[in-house]
Amino acid sequence: MAGQVFAYIVYKEGKADDTALELVKAAGKINPDASPTAIVTGSGSDLDAVCNEVTASYKEVWKFDNEALAYPNAEIIRQLLVKVLPADAVVLVAHDTFGMDLSPGLAIMLDSTFVPDVVDFEGLEGDTLKAVRQEFSGQVSTHVNCDLSNGAVINVRPGVFQADGAAGVGGQVIDKSSEIGELVLRRRYLETVEAEVGDVDITKEDVLVSVGRGIEDQDNIEIAEELAEAMGAVVSCSRPIVDAKWLEKSRQVGTSGQTVKPKVYMALGISGSFQHLGGLKGNPFIVAVNKNPKAPIFQVADVGIVEDLLEFAPVLTEKIAEGK
């Protein structure tokens, strides 16, 4: 049987991230009898607040308090975890930019198995865990067998294990700070530079016409702008459009861009990667225009149009204009 299950808790300003509860749910899906232990690192009052908060959903909360941990620097936290975790630990971490930083190396240092970006678990048999992953930005899924005999570090995709809320388990905080020992600082955190504010604030818009790589060329951005104008909407986009410098960063929807809450979201030539959809909240009415009928966006959209957007969007623009 696999070892003790742990969950690394991510938090901000003294408040645990949604993933703190999602990891409890994920642990339950691996093994219904597992009672995961929360690991919370940091320093001072924010740390204490989070430890107390998560006792509502974790029976045991390990607290590590140290000045060097004040900012969550994965390079330091990894060293700490290697010292304090049992050899066969199964460690759950949210698959965000912190988890991407921490986990692959952690698994190597623990000599355990790393399983990246899991979207579901389908049972544990002996030491073999069957998990579901996605490849090609969600175009296909795979089942993988993971060997947990030496423990594992498992990155769980945020948002897929919907939590029902804190369970009121009344757990206890165990202060493990004395076990921290010496930490080597080969990567030193300096500061966080906030993303630039642009000319429009897409987070406040009700209707967004969003373009992805399917727009194919910078000159075609106009097609989306004309449609947006006819609809009384604003243009947003996926990441490749910003990488290509066709639109400003402030127009990017997604985990590394803006979180938007429109009423209507029109996705033109966007495949529907989880990093993009991660920025779409509030259950909008989603219209997807994509020439690939198997694009993952059609699984989350309300209405789908399987067409070349370069042909369809101008027709739609014209028809809207006619009706006005």
């Binding site: 795979t142 067998n145 209405v303």
Partner: peptide
């Protein structure tokens, strides 16, 4: 230690209404 068993396309409920 991580072995891919298969590829599949998940059935995620109804999906979009295709016009």
């Amino acid at each position: 230690r991580v072995k891919r068993l298969d590829y599949f396309v998940p059935d995620l409920g109804e999906g979009a209404e295709i016009l």
